[in-house]
Amino acid sequence: TYVQALFDFDPQEDGELGFRRGDFIHVMDNSDPNWWKGACHGQTGMFPRNYVTPVN
């Protein structure tokens, strides 16, 4: 499953995934309602669910 970033996200903690608005992120785990795990630009980490939108 892929999502697209609605906003820039700069990691604040180790293990978070940084990205820029418009980036596509491969979702690896969406079991938590607020923080998902994904991959983008060769990196993996957690990111806030409300920063992304589903891609059809």
Rank of each mutant, 00 (worst) to 15 (best):
T1I: 13
Y2K: 10
V3Q: 03
V3S: 05
Q4H: 05
A5W: 00
A5L: 00
L6D: 10
L6M: 14
L6R: 09
L6A: 11
L6K: 15
F7C: 14
F7K: 15
D8W: 01
D8I: 03
F9T: 05
F9N: 05
F9K: 06
D10P: 05
P11Q: 04
Q12C: 15
Q12Y: 09
Q12A: 12
E13C: 05
E13D: 09
D14C: 14
D14S: 13
G15D: 06
G15E: 09
E16Y: 14
E16N: 07
E16I: 06
L17T: 01
L17A: 02
G18H: 13
G18F: 04
F19K: 02
F19A: 04
R20I: 07
R20W: 06
R21F: 07
R21K: 15
G22W: 05
D23L: 00
D23C: 04
F24Q: 15
F24A: 06
I25D: 02
I25R: 00
V27N: 00
V27H: 02
V27T: 01
M28I: 13
M28G: 03
D29W: 03
D29H: 04
S31Y: 06
S31V: 07
D32F: 04
D32E: 07
P33N: 06
N34M: 13
N34Q: 12
W35D: 03
W35E: 06
W35Q: 11
W35S: 07
W36I: 11
K37R: 12
K37V: 09
K37T: 11
G38E: 00
A39Q: 12
C40K: 05
C40S: 08
C40M: 10
C40A: 14
C40F: 05
H41A: 07
G42E: 08
G42Y: 06
Q43F: 08
T44Q: 09
T44E: 14
G45I: 03
M46Q: 08
M46I: 14
F47D: 02
F47L: 03
P48E: 03
P48C: 04
P48F: 02
N50R: 13
N50V: 06
N50T: 14
Y51W: 08
V52Y: 02
V52E: 02
T53R: 11
P54I: 09
P54M: 08
V55Y: 05
V55S: 08
N56I: 08
